[in-house]
């Protein structure tokens, strides 16, 4: 049973580290499916994480923190939209600007407001999203294998972890089963056709970008008020880019993107436990090798060596309405 519980502990950690990735990947999915490249997931998460932690520290309410995180995410997404949709600016440049702005501003404001070297004050349990015990978790523990799986892996996470699962389902449903989703996909493939059909390309793209902002806001809030108990400078540490990699890995589809996030999260969870452990035949695997694996895999995938990742056709191209 020891090996099994160890494995369950890794799975449990996988879910915890994959959650922000999943939320951010779904965020990126809306934006990129509508034709707007979004490398600013990282910056939006960072800014939201800071805003949420700041609000939670001041008000002591985790829900207010979540609301603020979402609003900040949407605000930055609208800046991205303003540059890319209204002014047809370069989408990569705009995304990069948001990342750099967030990376600087969070530290500047953090030091000015809290004077703790860029950190926010650490949050009490009331101001955070605390683990929830799912019904029957204790009772089910006695059932072999499935019982511990339910009580150790599925149960005992905070509410945002379950929100992330819900977000995957919701994204799938919206993108593939609603009229709005059809239009979002169409505007990312052939905006001219959507325009000809009498719909506003800008409006649809602004909607998609705003949803993207809200989801990255939840991801950021999770980092600073659920996974950790304060904001730390640069706390996203490339997770926005990993989410982007997962999105590409999942070929811009919700469920495969989620699986890619889980895989990257699993690698991360394993990497921590592999430190200093010598494997038979291979020897000690450097932690850095496992950390770099998501990026390496994405490059290999993009090169078409394991399947083809085809981006939405109109992604990155500004739409100019004919006059």
């Amino acid at each position: 049973m020891d090996a099994l519980s160890g494995f369950f502990a890794i799975l449990d950690a996988t879910l915890r580290v994959s959650t922000p990735l999943i939320l951010a990947a779904m965020a990126g999915l809306f934006s990129e499916r509508s034709g707007i490249v979004d490398i600013s997931l990282e910056g939006k998460m960072l800014a939201s994480a800071f805003a949420a932690a700041a609000v939670a520290a001041v008000t002591g309410s985790a829900w207010l923190a979540l609301g603020t995180g979402i609003l900040v995410g949407i605000a930055l997404a609208l800046v991205h939209g303003f540059a890319c949709i209204t002014h047809r600016g370069n989408q990569v440049v705009s995304g990069l600007a948001i990342n750099i702005l967030a990376s600087g501003l969070t530290v500047v404001l953090g030091i000015a407001w809290f004077a703790q070297g860029g950190q926010t004050p650490s949050l009490g349990s009331g101001a955070r999203f605390m683990p929830l015990e799912l019904p029957l978790a204790e009772a089910a523990r006695s059932v072999p294998v499935i019982g511990p799986f339910y009580s150790d892996v599925i149960s005992g996470h905070n509410v945002l972890v379950y929100v992330a699962w819900l977000a995957v389902f919701a994204t799938w449903w919206v993108v593939y089963r609603t009229r709005f989703g059809l239009r979002i996909r169409a505007v990312g493939e052939n905006p001219l056709a959507v325009d000809t059909a009498g719909l506003s390309v800008s409006r649809l793209r602004y909607c998609a970008v705003a949803i993207c902002g809200a989801l990255s806001g939840i991801a950021g809030t999770y980092l600073s008020t659920a996974q950790n108990a304060s904001f730390v400078r640069e706390m996203t540490a490339g997770q926005g880019y990993i989410a982007l990699a997962a999105l590409i890995f999942g070929k811009w589809r919700p469920v495969p993107a989620m699986l890619a996030c889980l895989m990257f999260g699993f690698l991360d969870a394993v990497a921590i436990r592999m430190q200093g452990v010598s494997l038979p035949l291979i020897g000690e695997v450097p932690v850095q090798a496992i950390q770099a694996l998501p990026y390496v895999l994405t490059v290999i995938l993009l090169a078409g060596f394991i399947g083809r990742a085809t981006a939405p056709k109109a992604v990155g191209i500004p739409f100019l309405k004919e006059r």
Partner: peptide, 16 residues
């Protein structure tokens, strides 16, 4: 980090 923030704004306004 103020400089980093200024840099972000310059990329936004001079670029995007």
């Amino acid at each position: 980090e103020m400089v980093v923030a200024i840099q972000g704004l310059i990329i936004l306004f001079s670029g995007a």
